[in-house]
């Protein structure tokens, strides 16, 4: 069955986007289900303006963002995050970075994932989250500052980023 094949082909990548954006396993599963139902119901409207994967991803991202439509909060940026140079190890694993990303505040995490992991442009993120392009850019910058701080702290320390 073609639909099943398409689902199997994309499920892991799409679920990872949803989970990383929402940091909530149940919401991410709901978003994935809703998104694939929409994909299969509207497959005939796909116009090949992008790759099929990119089209499905946009639908997954939108469904994920809808799960938190009224809950997105963008923290005011603290410009004085650290009082010493931060030493991040030269090598970290993807799992460690993933845990650090998922520990970010909701708004900063969503924008960082969409911009830096998924490659969306700031004007696209601004439209998706109904924020300004400036807010999108500053939240990415804020997320990076927080990540540097989290990754420079030893596991088990005050800012432990592991679950």
């Amino acid at each position: 069955m073609a639909q099943r094949w398409l689902y199997e082909r994309y499920k892991r990548a799409m679920f990872s986007v949803a989970l990383r954006t929402l940091n909530d396993y149940d919401h991410a599963n709901d978003a994935l289900q809703d998104a694939f139902v929409e994909v299969f119901r509207h497959l005939d409207s796909f116009r090949f303006q992008s790759t099929l994967g990119a089209w499905i991803k946009t639908i997954v991202v939108r469904q994920a963002l809808r799960k938190r439509q009224l809950e997105w909060r963008f923290e005011t940026i603290d410009e004085h995050l650290h009082d010493r140079p931060l030493e991040v190890p030269d090598f970290i694993t993807g799992a460690v970075l993933d845990a650090a990303i998922r520990s970010l505040p909701d708004g900063a995490r969503a924008v960082f994932v969409l911009a830096e992991v998924e490659g969306y442009k700031h004007h696209e993120i601004a439209a998706m989250l109904n924020i300004s392009e400036g807010t999108s850019k500053s939240q990415v910058s804020y997320a990076r500052k927080l990540l540097r701080k989290k990754l420079s702290e030893p596991p088990g320390g005050p800012g432990d980023y592991t679950d």
Binding site: R12, L32, G94, L147
Partner: peptide, 25 residues
């Protein structure tokens, strides 16, 4: 630190949805 983060973004893990997701869809 940014260079380490950017390098590691390519190694982020992928996750599996719940087993019965397809049946529900």
């Amino acid at each position: 630190a940014d260079a380490v983060i950017d390098r590691t973004l390519d190694d982020l893990p992928v996750f599996e949805p719940q087993d019965d997701a397809w049946e529900q869809i």
